[in-house]
Design a protein around this nucleic acid. Structure first.
Lengths: 345, 345
DNA sequence: ACAGCCGGCGCCGGTTTTACT
DNA sequence: GAGTAAAACCGGCGCCGGCTG
């Protein structure tokens, strides 16, 4: 129950000695327009305050056809939700929503296709539209159920989304990775290790593939990588994967890691193996999270505008709700290589 | 609008050739109990699927008096919301809520007392209860408005909360800090620097005060600290504060930092100043976040069960909603010192 | 007549339009 | 014409009572 013993509009009306209509008028600021006398207004406000009256939000949503709420869906922990990635993104969304008098609701995370009951989720959603993070098929399905949708994410599976019905915001991860590949090649590296190519599904992540290709095509460098099976992009997994990588390919002089969080574990593994950073092995991360500039050594990495991603997604979703056309179609946010001490002596 | 051209229950009824009541019965699983024939059930389900019918969540919430939603409030960024602290806590809440068929909604963050319109927030909340993070006065006010509330947080201002009407979950931060103080004293430190004593309001954080007192009483050690004014508990602020600390008190042999995120900046500042960790200066953090064990060097710190904190808060809130008494009163979660290489050669 | 099935109707608590002193 | 109240409606849920074979 929203309130224990629901004080209703009628209670306030009784207390103030007016009709329920007048209570609505006064509390919604339409009293002057409707010529309710100042004394009556004051009486209503006084009564509402005394009773701590709050209009029932469900009733308002029903008649107003607006919840002023944006839903947000992502994958099941631990793959995404419990990583700070989600947070940076979510905070951007919350802030943009707040700017527009909306709030954000976190809908049940997705595990797999079969067990996700779209009907039940929508039935209990209380949401005007949904931002879908990193689950392409769900964006598609929600759109089929006539729910306004914006898809965001690294996008391994967003190729055939119907952009005339849904919005999409992505980041130019491949571009940033290509910058890194060219940079490492240009400063003389010819053999790098790649940590983070595999997703839980086993498909190579597109941005890692972009790195490998660019590193090969630019100056003919070679990328070695391992597939440690399921991982969660945690420092721990970066640590484990890098140890395996060093055993398999001891000759690498640089490591490109798939995220800064894994890069922290990777740097630790390198130090434990007696390699100096960057003297023996250079390290490049991905993400440029707030800690990255303060690590020992400060980490060279690719910026990833996750905060903007969340904000832009909400902006587009609200545009859709207002019937504006710019809430649909694709938007790509830029990335950039930031060189720090982990690659530079 | 939840759905562009609202398909209503009546539409499904028309399509299936039954009454609206029957549609509800079938879709809510009470069809067998009410002896609706299998054929009719199938016809209804078929029609509902064909029209992609979803019951209006606002209407359901109104009649059912339940939103199946838990609200969550914290302070305005950047003080809390955009720190990973929020994430660990929030994820615990989301997971526990999901376990109980509920979802979590992020309500507008609090800036200050005057500008926070409790009436408007509650009016648009669509929640059954609220978890308040770190804003004692708001927990009190919401309870006055008859909203079920659980307060969580480090708790500088929760001393006089009415525990007969609200739930409270805190962590034994002081205990963990005292362990750290005794440990540092026992291994021979007599003069430590403290980073993170000041909140934006200027009052010393209780857990930092606990450290200082215990360090003094246990073996007569001395704590030096500085107040760098407003800060956001970021690595950057930890870096800045530690630099100031080293200038003011060059003789310190250990640093107790208020959070692991600041500790990352603190370690960087120490390295930049040419101090070796732990040989010249030992470092202790607070939080034990996933990265902390993989830093260079791995960080000694105090565990902080933020994930459990979020889960427990939701658990208590839902207990309140079920009318159970154990949703009220105070619960304290334990902390623990974890010794790693940043204090041990 | 008596199960087995289904539909009419009032209600939840607001907003908005219209009508009435 | 100023000020307030009545009534329709939003879209579901569920109690009854009634219709069927």
């Amino acid at each position: 129950m929203t309130r224990q013993h629901g004080v209703s509009r009628a209670d306030v009306a009784g207390e103030a000695g007016v009709s329920p209509t007048t209570v609505s008028l006064v509390l919604n600021g339409r009293a002057d327009e409707k010529r309710v006398s100042k004394q009556t207004q004051e009486r209503v406000r006084e009564a509402a305050w005394r009773l701590r009256y709050v209009p029932n939000s469900a009733a308002r949503a029903m008649v107003g056809r607006r919840h002023l709420t944006v839903g947000m869906v992502t994958r099941q922990p631990p793959s995404t939700l419990h990583l700070p990635i989600f947070e940076y993104f979510a905070v951007g969304a919350v802030e943009e929503a707040a700017r527009r008098q909306h709030t954000v609701k976190i809908l049940p995370p997705v595990t797999d296709v079969e067990s996700y009951d779209v009907f039940a989720v929508l039935r209990d959603a209380h949401v005007d539209g949904i931002v879908v993070h990193n689950v392409g098929w769900l964006a598609q399905v929600l759109a089929d159920w006539r729910m306004p949708v914006v898809y965001v994410g690294p996008g391994e599976d967003h190729d055939d989304l119907p952009l005339d019905r849904i919005g999409m915001v992505t980041t130019d991860e491949q571009g940033g990775m290509c910058s890194s590949a060219r940079y490492l090649a240009d400063v003389g590296h010819t053999t790098v290790g790649v940590v983070g190519n595999a997703t839980p599904e086993g498909a190579p992540l597109r941005r890692m593939r972009a790195f490998i290709d660019e590193f090969a095509h630019h100056r003919g460098g070679i990328s070695h990588y391992i597939d440690p099976g399921d991982w969660t992009w945690s420092p721990e997994d970066g640590h484990r994967a890098t140890k395996q990588l060093l055993e398999a390919w001891p000759g690498i002089t640089a490591v490109q890691v798939g995220s800064d969080w894994m890069a922290i574990g990777a740097m630790r593994a390198l130090v434990e193996a007696g390699r100096r950073i960057p003297d023996d092995v250079a390290v490049v991360g991905f993400g440029d999270f707030p800690v990255s500039a303060f690590l020992n050594p400060p980490l060279t990495t690719v910026t990833w505008p996750l905060h903007d991603l969340g904000g832009k997604a909400v902006e587009m979703l609200l545009a859709q709700l207002d019937g504006k056309p710019d809430g649909l179609g694709a938007v790509v946010l830029p990335t950039e290589l930031v060189v720090r001490s982990s690659t530079r002596q």
